[in-house]
Design a protein around this nucleic acid. Sequence first.
RNA 1: GUCCCCGUCGUCUAGCCAGGUCUAGGACACCAGGUUUUCAUCCUGGUAACACGGGUUCGAAUCCCGUCGGGGAUACCA
Length: 511
Amino acid sequence: MTTPSIVTRFAPSPTGLLHVGGARTALFSWAYAKGRGGTFILRLEDTDQKRSSEAAAEKIIEDLRWLGLNWDNSGGVIPRQSQRLARYNEVIDELKSRRLAYDDAGAVRFRMDNLPGVAFDDAVYGHIEVGKGQLEDFVIKKADGFPTFHLAVVVDDIDMNVTHVIRGQEHLSNTAKHAALYDALGKPRPVWVHTPSIMNPDGSKMSKRDKAKVARKAALARIEIEGREAFIDRVLNVKPVPMYIQDSDAVSGNISDKIDGFIDSENDDILTAAVIALREGIRLPEINVADFRASGYLPGVLCNYLALLGWNPGNDVERFDLDFMCETFDFDRINKANSKFDREKLLAFNADTLQKMPPEEFASLLKEHQPRLATKLGDQFRGFAGMYQPRSRTLNDPAELGRFFFEAPTTYDDKAVKKNLARNDGEGLKLLGEFRDVLAGTEWNAAALQAAVEKFTADKQLKNMGSIAQPLRVALTGTAVSPPIDQTLELIGQQETLARVDRCLDKCKEN
RNA sequence: GUCCCCGUCGUCUAGCCAGGUCUAGGACACCAGGUUUUCAUCCUGGUAACACGGGUUCGAAUCCCGUCGGGGAUACCA
């Protein structure tokens, strides 16, 4: 029941990292082809020489792999337009010789003025007509010898037998040009499928500018406080930035030269933004696939959420995997209206998936995501992972929520101390002191510790286990929050537990 | 400015094409209760939308027109 003739492609321009909008386009193209026994091609549109880079190309490829969207390019070769100049020139020359294109100050333009108008059909937006008045001759070959996107995309899609062109709605207005080109070349037009855009919650377009905005705001606030020179000094002292947050156009260059430009001329250098964020301890909004990966989202969840932005399988079904996408995806259920990216919903999906998966799977994903955390914890890693699986919304959460396992508290949260230690003439503090001696003589495993807590609660006729568990939490973590107290104690270890309790008792007696 | 596209809860959306079954359904978020040694989870309940104005029709979220609002194109970017 397959239709082997279907060919789709994803054709990003390697001018930056893969962003979520591109990822969704890739996902739709992939799912449509895969679900019908067709072919999905990856191709790089690097006709913009100035902005394209090989580094960006490699990162896009890596992100696509991570998402699980595999391509079927013959021989595994990913075509680059920069390597097909001869072919484009052949087409351009043909057009010129047929007087359908002409030289214009070093460039070549395709003639549209001889057309009565252009009409085409889109699988999502329906029938579209563009009147003669809107048709202008357009450049198909630039003065630098490269073809424009319009020419290259059409020639490539023809040569690669692409049957369905799935792309962002920003190309809808360009499609009349492409249709005219197909017609001029005497080739059958593909099925065009334009998808609505993904926007920020405030309705603006999602772009790397959003990162720059946040970083710039933080920088200006800091400069307000400590002055410009001191700020630049701080930023210069930052450690090397992880590769994943680097952008292709910012990989090289001296950071110090860029800070002024970043702050004053509002360029959107995201490496500078990332460095500032690192230094200021703020989070930049996730925009690119790599950002979500770094933040601890699962690729399957990202795909699931992204698919829902503009498409749904009906019947109130919201959670599904890539296989389901292949089976059910079709153009007739793609929406027309733009949608806003809602991180909360993505987070909820991610949390749900993380919390419901088998513990072994969670542990192995966490280890893969943060190998150093696993190394540091050694034998305790499994216990740690198990403890935080029910509490994690991303793969970054365990390390953040469980920070106190590695760093003993140096300060104690005021509210937590008042409520759990100081209240009622230091009742909590007194109980903590008494329970310290119990702990010193308890066998160190979760079951025994739990029994000890319960016995203590009964012996002292306490209201509930919280009466002793909460003071303990404050001593161990500096806050009133931790996983179940028995597990927490077991993992911290007897020696360290007693040391922390003693330190807390000392510190509280001082005040 | 001109042209193209779009407009259902705060957000993503179902319903629209084939008008009545829609006192508009689901999800996330939010609010209130409950379970729980804290947190998280979990359970129950709740608030909340057809942009506006005309028309067609016995009947309109669904069809038509206009207004307003949003997005895109108008580049030798893609």
